[in-house]
């Protein structure tokens, strides 16, 4: 088997990869200005690492790996400090989801059918739009954990160490994020 050693060609980076990296970032951060900044930072950081490129992966895979780390940095920053207020607020909202004494769904928040449970998931634009809005409403930390898990299929250990959350907290966040997302869909779709 012949494996071709991959080469880097910075003269064509923007033409070949900028749009891809931009959409990759946008789908994970949803902020155009920030996405532009990250694409730029990625190329500049990559230039400094050109010597260390071993040619084992494609140019695009290599650039994407650099970008991924930058996105995680953003997640980390967003999830610290003031952002916790959003988290507290979202936690507060969930207090009404279940009865305090026995953990049953409360009448006001119990799941109702979306009307799409029994067929092939509806790929309608409208539902996707609401889903997107509901995801944006999640507190930054929940969104970060949720995205890393479901979109990048990162391991739980990796997410915990990168975002500095404990395993126990990870499960709490995964649970809370889904409860919020589902409740938001129910409120805005039905």
């Amino acid at each position: 088997m012949v494996t071709e050693k991959q080469l880097l060609d910075p003269h064509h980076w923007v033409k070949a990869h900028a749009d891809y990296l931009y959409s990759y970032t946008l789908s994970r951060l949803n902020d155009e200005e920030q996405a532009k900044d990250l694409v730029q930072e990625t190329f500049l950081a990559a230039l400094e690492k050109v010597d260390r490129f071993e040619g084992k992966s494609s140019e695009r895979t290599w650039l994407t790996a650099i970008l991924k780390n930058k996105i995680i940095d953003v997640y980390r920053k967003k999830s610290s400090g003031l952002a916790n207020i959003a988290e507290q607020k979202a936690e507060e909202e969930q207090k009404d989801f279940f009865e305090e004494d026995n953990g049953h769904w409360t009448q006001a928040h119990q799941p109702l059918p979306f009307g799409i449970e029994d067929h092939e998931p509806l790929r309608g634009k409208e539902f996707n739009h609401i889903l997107q809005l509901c995801m944006q409403k999640l507190p930054a930390m929940w969104m970060s954990v949720f995205t890393m898990k479901h979109m990048d299929e990162a391991t739980t250990e990796f997410i915990c160490s990168e975002l500095r959350v404990t395993q126990a907290n990870f499960w709490v966040i995964i649970h809370r994020a889904k409860l919020s997302l589902r409740a938001c869909l129910q409120k805005n779709w039905i």
């Binding site: 900028a18 931009y22 959409s23 789908s27 449970e117 998931p121 996707n128 889903l131 979109m151």
Partner: peptide, 23 residues
């Protein structure tokens, strides 16, 4: 489970929209 599938689909669609999201 449906939400997970749809989120995955949504991410996937967004990544495919390179032409409409271009810089």
């Amino acid at each position: 489970q449906i939400i997970n599938q749809m989120v995955l689909q949504l991410f996937h669609d967004t990544e495919l929209q390179v032409s409409t999201l271009s810089l």
